[in-house]
Design a protein around this nucleic acid. Structure first.
Lengths: 198, 198
DNA sequence: GTCAGGCTGGCACTCAGTGCCAAGCTGGCA
DNA sequence: TGCCAGCTTGGCACTGAGTGCCAGCCTGAC
């Protein structure tokens, strides 16, 4: 069944966020079937029952249609780090947060796996994901900079730590996707961190 | 004076690499003047004295025109790591290689700074650079995986180490660019690594 | 001299993304 | 109830990146 039918009627009454979600759901249906590169924004617009122009108002780029959830994830991670006791070192806090990631209400393994697979096979998506991660850095730096380590941490050091941690997350995600979601993402993450910190 | 005049005559006789370099030089002249986003591939082609179509044969994307040197850098780094004694740990080798980076014959601080600045202000370029770095990972992993650490290293750990190191390099590059090339890139890199490995 | 293979430029096309404008909806106010 | 201001939508036209195709030209081998 198509999304076009029911969405064309009640679109205006819905809140913006709901519309976004509905469009994204319709888009994912198409993209998972045809692949990211082979799906055009015109097709997505048609499937979602909105005009091409409006589609670009909701999602600035085609990549954002797939990766829209990542911005929220960045804020969620920052909040989770914020919630950790200040006595924890940066890495203790980050590892603890990673452990809790998969139990968050917004965590849907199937969706994350699908996105992960798509990122592996579509460099443009991977690049865009990296950009999003870059955005997370500035969210996370203030949470990390205040934490204790060997010596005062500071912004420069915090930025290095956060960037390295996100690199570990990327590696862990790739491994997790390659393993088809077997085992937990957190375990791959802690493996990566352990390797890096020796 | 323009590149168009002298290049339109002798273009065919030149070797492919030279042509690439000449095109890139002409392009950089334009891009540094107008900015990356405001410069079109048509303008670059005209300035370089080649057709738009041929320009796309030499550089698959607009970003590649600016970042073309990075692929070589990846191989150069891999070779440099290969040349380090096998008794060195991954991080010892990587730090040593970073120290030597700026004395390499291909290292031109002015160009690197210009590229770095452009990457800061143009997300698309930054994303593309990240993609290139991703390509370096597979070059570097075999060089790192054979090195000693606390326990056997292996590919998974090596990938994490290399990715984290490249994240440190990115942070270091940003700082170095922000400092306008004052101090050495290597010192920023070792600062980052020290912060990460605490 | 000629023939095959590779490089070149031109043309037309697809598709992402943007600016502009007119039409419609909504909530507030008289 | 009627009107007005502001926001959203959709349609249109446009720019610019990137690609496929083809025809012409140059080069090197025989």
């Amino acid at each position: 069944m198509s999304y076009a039918a029911d969405m064309s009627q009640s679109l205006w009454q819905r809140t913006r966020r709901t519309v976004r979600d509905d469009i994204a759901a319709a888009a994912m249906e198409l993209i998972l079937e045809q692949g990211f590169a082979a799906t055009t924004m015109d097709e997505i617009a048609a499937q979602a029952g909105v005009s091409r122009r409006s589609l670009f108002r909701y999602f600035g780029t085609k990549e954002d249609v797939v990766l829209r959830t990542l911005a929220n994830t960045g804020e969620a991670i920052a909040e989770a780090v914020h919630a950790r006791p200040l006595s924890e070192t940066p890495w203790e806090a980050l590892l603890a947060v990673a452990d809790g990631l998969e139990t968050a209400p917004t965590w849907e393994p199937a969706r994350e796996l699908a996105i992960g697979r798509m990122c592996v096979e579509t460099p443009a998506l991977r690049a865009r994901r990296a950009e999003k991660h870059q955005g997370w850095v500035e969210l996370l730096v203030p949470e990390i900079a205040v934490r204790p380590a060997s010596g005062p941490v500071g912004d420069a050091a915090a930025e290095a730590i956060v960037s390295a941690a996100l690199a570990c997350l990327d590696v862990a995600t790739d491994r997790w996707v390659a393993a088809d979601g077997e085992s937990s993402l957190a375990s791959f993450f802690s493996d990566a961190v352990r390797a890096v910190r020796g």
